[in-house]
Design a protein around this nucleic acid. Sequence first.
DNA 1: GATAAAAACGATCATACGTTCGTTTCCTGA
DNA 2: TCAGGAAACGAACGTATGATCGTTTTTATC
Lengths: 196, 196
Amino acid sequence: MSRTRGSSGPKTLAAINEAGLDLIYTVGYEAMSLRELAAKVGLQPGSLYNHIETKQDLLFDLIHNHMVMLLARVDAELEGIDGPAERLRAFVAFHLDYHIERKREVFIGSAELRSLTPKHRKEIVALRRAYEDRLCDILKKGAAKKLFRIDDVRVTAYALLAMLTGICTWYDPKGRVNRRKLIDLHTRLVMEGVAA
Amino acid sequence: MSRTRGSSGPKTLAAINEAGLDLIYTVGYEAMSLRELAAKVGLQPGSLYNHIETKQDLLFDLIHNHMVMLLARVDAELEGIDGPAERLRAFVAFHLDYHIERKREVFIGSAELRSLTPKHRKEIVALRRAYEDRLCDILKKGAAKKLFRIDDVRVTAYALLAMLTGICTWYDPKGRVNRRKLIDLHTRLVMEGVAA
DNA sequence: GATAAAAACGATCATACGTTCGTTTCCTGA
DNA sequence: TCAGGAAACGAACGTATGATCGTTTTTATC
């Protein structure tokens, strides 16, 4: 056999990305074999290489696309919102929403950092740092206006991000707690935690 | 060659555990080869099997020992402390201390859950659940006495644990922030966050 | 409708992996 | 002191892996 009916590049690549996302999320990058991935997409192993450079590039692209999207979305979300308190609220709500919606990408984006080439890792870490800076800025401005009481901006940002990102590891959309309640609960923890 | 001078079972096993801990923390369980591990210990690959059952068992033992230790220590730490507020403070301080001291074990204990056999994973998850319950109990009692204001005990516990465990991913003992300040900062975030 | 590129196949390569095993040397307890 | 177990070696086994390549069929372009 050879090229199959109706096959198109972009469609197959999208299928590879989706299947890869799922497999890496489930079993991890190292444990995922390209044969497994190919089978899930409905291809022979070798055919993957019509769409990806290497296994490593597949991982990097997944994480990179996610990080770029995350940054674009957070900036869009915060645009036009004034005042540190309101911006912090918006940040929390956005972060939770995004992390619920794309928990696989987020999880991989931190759990599989170690599987990246040093060069690739550096690039991702820089993007993550940029995202952290969004929160740091808000905290800093709030502290300057005496709205927040913050000992150490960076450490506080890490603590809050860790808390907010935690839901990725356990949140179940069909579970007991709904999205609204989750956001309210976390918002309260954050706002009370940093309140002056 | 054959058996080397001064070799003893327990010592070698300890060396394997330490090297394994380090390698798994650095490169991950799947990415660690037993050849790499053996080289680090100073053995031939086959010799590992005088001390471990399988690679999987090595991972399980590492995580299991850590979880049992964690549970024993938290109970010892909380014993005799009265009042939800004081117990919560003690829990936070203990958790941070332990997670700073044993960040490799803690990290592996959550990051490598997926690499465990279903049966092994079940066992570890049960132990982790038991640990979470320690915090849930404190929160519940505090809420009952109107000392804390908590919407959902389990979710709040998850949020707090995620925040407190976060330091494992970035804390550097030689870094800018010292242990004391870290504990104070987190304690404040937690206590203010749940305050009635 | 011809032609080049795209996208699949299937076979294959070299390597790395976890594990086993027979053998040899060292340590320990009767 | 010596017998037996413990702890190492080194070679090997079977398998799985990421990746390559020549070939074939489909799609897209002019």
